[in-house]
Deep mutational scan, measured.
Amino acid sequence: DLSALRVEEVQNVINAMQKILECPICLELIKEPVSTKCDHIFCKFCMLKLLNQKKGPSQCPLCKNDITKRSLQESTRFSQLVEELLKIICAFQLDTGLEYANSYNFAKKENNSPEHLKDEVSIIQSMGYRNRAKRLLQSEPENPSLQETSLSVQLSNLGTVRTLRTKQRIQPQRTSVYIELGSDSSEDTVNKATYCSVGDQELLQITPQGTRDEISLDSAKKAACEFSETDVTNTEHHQPSNNDLNTTEKRAAERHPEKYQGSSVSNLHVEPCGTNTHASSLQHENSSLLLTKDRMNVEKAEF
């Protein structure tokens, strides 16, 4: 173990290094160091905050020279020094078990990766560091076993998940096959086929009936047209017969005018059967003409 005197000496050296690497504005270890034209180094955030307070150039807090945003430059070497100082402080805390008085939040800088452990060898070769390295080497064999167990647990979990997924996939297939086998029997399929065939026959029977009705309507229309044509021909046949009657009536009127007047009046009210309204109107006109002729003949006879 380190003596108290040596611990104090190391602590004083760390404090001196820390004062050199402090920012003059925030009085902390410089984060993202930036250098000016006057070779003074500050935190990048502190300098941008200072420049944004005034429009135009501002003055350096140490030498009062003008500073602009374009004049600022990043210093990589200074950032490396800060990183190495942080590593020294971490090693000091691990070796002594004491917390550094002016320690900052170094938890963000710590890294437990194997590459980081290899890099620590180049920091300080001390008894405390050696003991700590031995402890780490002793704890390393235990870690692979834990990793193997965790991997086995994960693989077993994956296997159970896969088996569950396969079961879920197989179950719908089985149910679907069961439904297909038990849903419709052979008799049901035959009945469905016969039902479809009967429906098709009914459709075939319905369509000819409609065509037959249309044919019957067409035949009825044709018969009505033929009947009207026969009526017209009958009226045409009746007209010459009426003319013959008129000639006979004229002759009778010349011989017996008194008797014919009474008979002509009675004939006005008689309509021949089986004739249309057109034929009756023609008869009325003929009878009126005959009456006028008879009157003329009677007057001539009187004179």
Score class of each variant (00 low, 15 high):
232 V>E: 06
5 L>I: 09
293 K>I: 00
51 L>D: 03
174 R>G: 15
151 L>P: 12
106 F>L: 11
275 T>C: 04
27 L>Q: 06
285 E>I: 01
302 E>Q: 03
276 N>M: 00
25 I>F: 04
292 T>N: 02
222 K>V: 03
21 L>V: 05
272 P>V: 00
166 T>W: 01
85 L>Y: 08
155 L>Y: 11
106 F>V: 08
13 V>W: 10
249 E>Y: 01
190 V>I: 09
16 A>Y: 02
90 C>H: 03
105 N>P: 04
43 C>A: 15
69 K>W: 00
272 P>R: 03
82 V>R: 09
247 T>F: 01
215 I>M: 01
4 A>R: 09
188 D>N: 09
87 K>G: 03
31 K>N: 10
197 S>C: 02
117 L>V: 02
122 S>H: 05
155 L>S: 13
220 A>Q: 05
257 P>S: 02
2 L>A: 06
139 S>G: 06
59 Q>K: 09
18 Q>L: 12
10 V>M: 11
163 T>D: 05
166 T>H: 11
205 Q>Y: 13
210 G>Q: 04
47 M>G: 10
34 V>T: 05
146 L>R: 12
149 T>G: 12
22 E>T: 01
18 Q>K: 13
261 Q>A: 11
278 H>Q: 03
260 Y>E: 12
160 T>V: 11
46 C>P: 15
240 P>A: 15
46 C>F: 15
261 Q>I: 03
286 N>S: 04
66 D>P: 00
179 I>T: 08
2 L>K: 09
101 A>S: 14
58 S>V: 08
260 Y>I: 07
247 T>L: 04
35 S>C: 06
131 N>T: 07
254 E>L: 04
133 A>L: 09
154 Q>P: 12
86 L>I: 06
85 L>T: 12
161 V>A: 12
48 L>V: 04
302 E>V: 03
161 V>S: 13
157 N>P: 09
260 Y>L: 08
192 K>A: 11
64 K>W: 00
59 Q>Y: 04
264 S>V: 05
271 E>G: 05
44 K>D: 03
154 Q>C: 00
9 E>G: 11
276 N>Y: 01
102 N>T: 05
233 T>W: 00
217 L>R: 09
84 E>K: 09
79 S>C: 06
61 P>V: 14
16 A>P: 15
49 K>V: 03
186 S>Q: 07
16 A>M: 11
140 E>P: 13
34 V>R: 09
3 S>T: 08
226 E>H: 15
55 K>Q: 11
133 A>H: 05
146 L>V: 11
4 A>C: 11
60 C>G: 15
202 E>K: 11
17 M>F: 11
191 N>C: 04
258 E>L: 01
153 V>H: 12
1 D>G: 02
193 A>T: 12
102 N>L: 08
300 K>S: 00
209 Q>P: 07
50 L>Q: 05
136 L>T: 04
79 S>H: 04
274 G>M: 10
200 D>N: 11
12 N>G: 02
30 I>Q: 03
169 R>I: 00
219 S>I: 01
232 V>T: 06
94 L>S: 13
32 E>S: 09
124 I>H: 12
291 L>E: 12
280 S>R: 03
92 F>E: 13
130 R>A: 06
22 E>R: 10
58 S>L: 08
257 P>H: 03
192 K>F: 14
93 Q>E: 09
225 C>V: 13
42 F>A: 07
64 K>Q: 13
100 Y>P: 04
2 L>P: 13
13 V>L: 05
29 L>I: 03
204 L>A: 09
15 N>Q: 07
95 D>C: 15
46 C>L: 15
215 I>L: 04
260 Y>R: 11
219 S>A: 06
51 L>W: 13
158 L>R: 14
247 T>W: 13
120 E>T: 08
213 D>W: 00
222 K>Y: 00
54 K>A: 12
245 L>N: 09
251 R>I: 02
50 L>F: 10
255 R>Q: 14
35 S>G: 10
204 L>V: 06
228 S>P: 07
91 A>D: 07
202 E>G: 04
58 S>P: 15
275 T>F: 13
23 C>E: 15
219 S>W: 00
42 F>N: 14
146 L>K: 15
93 Q>S: 06
233 T>P: 08
174 R>V: 09
299 E>K: 10
21 L>Y: 02
199 G>W: 00
77 R>C: 14
63 C>H: 15
126 S>D: 02
231 D>I: 05
159 G>D: 08
57 P>G: 04
218 D>P: 03
43 C>N: 15
223 A>N: 13
257 P>N: 07
9 E>F: 04
232 V>A: 13
54 K>H: 13
128 G>N: 15
127 M>A: 01
53 Q>H: 07
147 Q>T: 06
94 L>G: 09
36 T>C: 03
33 P>A: 02
58 S>K: 12
276 N>R: 00
68 T>I: 02
66 D>F: 06
15 N>V: 11
272 P>Y: 01
208 P>A: 02
12 N>D: 15
92 F>S: 13
274 G>R: 01
188 D>I: 02
86 L>V: 03
40 H>Q: 11
209 Q>V: 07
70 R>H: 02
63 C>S: 13
302 E>D: 05
233 T>N: 05
130 R>H: 05
63 C>I: 15
207 T>I: 01
83 E>R: 13
148 E>H: 03
57 P>C: 02
263 S>G: 13
211 T>A: 06
244 D>C: 04
131 N>I: 11
61 P>C: 00
18 Q>G: 06
207 T>A: 06
86 L>Q: 15
270 V>A: 01
104 Y>P: 15
4 A>V: 05
83 E>K: 13
146 L>T: 05
222 K>D: 13
31 K>V: 13
34 V>N: 12
109 K>W: 04
83 E>V: 09
62 L>N: 12
294 D>K: 06
138 Q>F: 03
65 N>S: 09
7 V>I: 07
160 T>L: 05
135 R>D: 04
40 H>Y: 09
83 E>P: 08
26 C>N: 15
218 D>W: 00
14 I>T: 13
139 S>V: 08
207 T>S: 06
281 S>F: 05
214 E>K: 15
206 I>S: 12
285 E>S: 02
284 H>L: 01
66 D>G: 08
197 S>D: 01
88 I>W: 13
16 A>N: 08
296 M>W: 00
146 L>P: 14
45 F>M: 08
50 L>T: 05
165 R>A: 09
192 K>N: 07
114 P>H: 04
162 R>K: 08
272 P>L: 00
57 P>R: 06
265 V>N: 09
162 R>V: 08
37 K>S: 01
150 S>Y: 04
132 R>L: 05
130 R>P: 09
212 R>S: 03
2 L>W: 12
69 K>M: 00
158 L>K: 11
49 K>Q: 03
222 K>W: 00
53 Q>N: 06
277 T>A: 05
161 V>D: 12
160 T>I: 08
75 S>N: 12
206 I>K: 15
60 C>F: 14
257 P>W: 01
31 K>H: 11
104 Y>H: 08
299 E>V: 03
298 V>I: 06
107 A>I: 02
280 S>G: 14
3 S>Y: 07
158 L>M: 06
6 R>L: 05
29 L>F: 02
70 R>C: 11
105 N>A: 07
119 D>G: 01
54 K>V: 13
158 L>V: 10
22 E>G: 07
84 E>L: 14
252 A>F: 03
16 A>I: 08
75 S>L: 13
136 L>G: 10
278 H>I: 02
226 E>K: 12
207 T>G: 12
132 R>V: 15
7 V>C: 07
137 L>R: 07
257 P>Y: 05
159 G>Q: 15
53 Q>G: 11
123 I>A: 14
245 L>T: 09
30 I>E: 06
158 L>N: 10
90 C>P: 05
145 S>H: 00
287 S>I: 02
85 L>A: 01
42 F>T: 08
276 N>F: 01
20 I>T: 07
